[in-house]
């Protein structure tokens, strides 16, 4: 393993939410990314997402003609835009800029008008058309008296009836006076940089989950942060820069690392 994981852990100590003027940012090193999807699965598990609600997702492109083909996998998530069109256009301010520059969503204020979904140029906001995880309500067994059922698994795992989530749901997600591990019908939801983890001094799940250590996370207003180090070393890109939303998610280097000058770690022509 690289020393990246050690520096990321050290990063944690200096990155807290409560400081004034903390500007959280993520950098994705595309050369390290192998397009494995561990981030997507980890995020789905962390946030108790049902199918189709992936906060952490991907843009995949194949270009060229055989045998000169290039394939690029770009991990995506909410860009936590500094100038967030979703928050601006939210009539109830359910979407609003919060601590650390995170675009937060207060689901109790959300009226499900979907303006944010229209405004977001990245399609990173998802609507709950129904209460989540309906398949986990089922009492049907594939084989009667032989296999379990969704309900039976939840019972066995000690998960309450009123929890609209799988038996393995994460209880630490968005907890309030009564637990709300999932959202519900009629409101939207989106990535919030795992604010529930940040508050416990843990990195966002996708950052921790990535086995390639391709995600770097930290405070841009801290001159010593790894995030700033990486951003200074390479030429960062953002998605749809011309939309002017000022994303907090940056990309460096190239997924097709083969275009690099070997042994130097320096970008080749593609960067």
């Amino acid at each position: 393993m690289s020393s990246e994981s050690e520096s990321l852990d050290a990063e944690l100590e200096t990155t807290t939410l409560d400081g004034e003027g903390v500007d959280l940012s993520m950098v994705i090193d595309l050369q390290r990314c192998t397009g494995c999807g561990a981030c997507n699965i980890g995020c789905a598990q962390e946030n108790n997402l049902q199918e189709g609600m992936a906060y952490s997702s991907r843009i995949i492109e194949t270009n060229g003609e055989f045998p000169n083909v290039s394939y690029e996998y770009t991990p995506t998530l909410c860009n936590q835009c500094d100038d967030a069109p979703c928050a601006e256009g939210c009539p109830t301010s359910a979407l609003h800029k919060g601590k650390g520059g995170i675009t937060m969503h207060d689901h109790e204020t959300c009226i499900g008008c979907k303006s944010c979904m229209i405004n977001c140029p990245y399609d990173e906001i998802h609507l709950n058309e129904e209460d989540p995880h309906p398949t986990w309500e089922s009492e049907e067994a594939t084989i009667e008296s032989g296999t379990a059922s969704a309900r039976a698994v939840k019972d066995r795992a000690g998960v309450d009836d009123d929890v609209d989530a799988p038996a393995y749901y994460n209880p630490n997600r968005e907890v309030s006076e009564t637990e709300h591990p999932t959202r519900y019908k009629g409101i939207v939801e989106k990535c919030n940089f795992c604010v529930h983890r940040l508050e416990r001094d843990e990195l966002p799940r996708c950052v921790e989950e990535c086995p390639c250590e391709a995600r770097i996370f930290g405070d841009r207003n801290d001159p010593d942060s790894t995030v700033n180090e990486v951003l200074a070393k390479y030429n960062p890109d953002v998605l749809k820069a011309d939309e002017g939303t000022e994303p907090s998610v940056n990309y460096v280097r190239d997924y097709n690392g083969g275009s690099y000058e070997r042994g130097t770690g320096e970008p080749g022509l593609g960067d």
């Binding site: 601006e88 800029k97 601590k99 207060d106």
Partner: peptide, 14 residues
């Protein structure tokens, strides 16, 4: 002046 629900809001809530 164009924004509600800002950091100031969060600070007060805290």
């Amino acid at each position: 002046e164009t924004r509600v629900m800002t950091e100031a809001t969060e600070r007060v809530r805290t």
